[in-house]
């Protein structure tokens, strides 16, 4: 699903060069739930930005869903983000002036779907996160946990192949955080690959695999999971 090989990323200013990623390599299989951990400044967010095609990189090779995405145009990267990737952000990143329906609708409109199809997907994804009854509410009328669930609904509405979560519980209290993680767990069990960046070790334990990043490199690969890896084909078969 995701294959990064020797990815390097350097941020340059007039005075300094910062090596955010150094020969970073990672494989994520379809249906996996991978947690990427590491201290602040270790390169977690840079990894997530590059993996989610939000940023380009300097050297290395990156294949996403068997497609080499190393040298794509800006428009092509937008298309892949829209069709194959779902994002969950630490600050939810909902549009404050739009109600839940229109927030979930944002990525679908860029895909050019019919109004009926969009409505079906929006309703289904809001039902999945338990917020279908609040469809006309604006984000300010929801709790933090509810807002993050709307963000998850937005990410899922487009049926992404892979979900990138950036500290998804970072702004939530423990109860709400547990609800969100349970939801991610459920989504993964339904076959969606999830890559989650977090510094929360408890949260990381819920993933199949834990990737630790330090100084822009993968330093350790651990698996805390006891549950079997659920693949889409397995779901389809049974």
């Amino acid at each position: 699903m995701l294959s990064m090989s020797d990815i390097s990323k350097v941020y340059r200013t007039d005075l300094i060069e910062t090596h955010a990623l150094r020969k970073f390599s990672l494989e994520v299989k379809e249906g996996e739930f991978v947690a990427v951990t590491g201290p602040s400044g270790s390169g977690k967010t840079t990894f997530l930005n590059i993996a989610g095609l939000l940023e380009t990189f300097d050297t290395g090779t990156y294949k996403l869903d068997n497609e080499d995405v190393s040298r794509l145009s800006d428009d092509a990267r937008s298309r892949i983000r829209n069709q194959k990737i779902g994002f969950i952000f630490q600050s939810f990143n909902l549009i404050p002036d739009l109600d839940l329906f229109d927030n979930v609708d944002v990525p679908l409109r860029y895909r050019g779907m019919s109004a009926a199809e969009r409505k079906r997907r929006i309703t289904e994804s809001l039902e999945l996160v338990g917020l279908a009854s609040r469809i006309k509410h604006i984000p300010a009328q929801l709790s933090g946990g509810q807002q993050q669930r709307v963000a998850i609904a937005r990410a899922l509405a487009g049926s992404p192949r892979i979900l990138f979560a950036d500290e998804p519980t970072g702004n939530l209290d423990s109860l709400m955080a547990r609800q969100v993680v349970d939801l991610l767990d459920d989504i993964n069990r339904r076959g969606t690959t999830i890559v989650m960046v977090t510094h929360d070790t408890e949260l990381a334990r819920r993933a199949h695999r834990n990737v630790h990043v330090m100084d822009g490199q993968v330093t350790d690969l651990q698996s805390y999971t006891t549950k079997p890896l659920v693949r889409p084909e397995a779901l389809a078969a049974g």
């Binding site: 939000l54 428009d75 983000r81 952000f89 990143n93 549009i95």
Partner: peptide, 16 residues
């Protein structure tokens, strides 16, 4: 700015 970045992240092209 953040909202525009989010729109770009979820698939908006520059022209959008």
């Amino acid at each position: 700015r953040k909202q525009i970045g989010t729109r770009r992240a979820v698939g908006a092209r520059r022209v959008d």
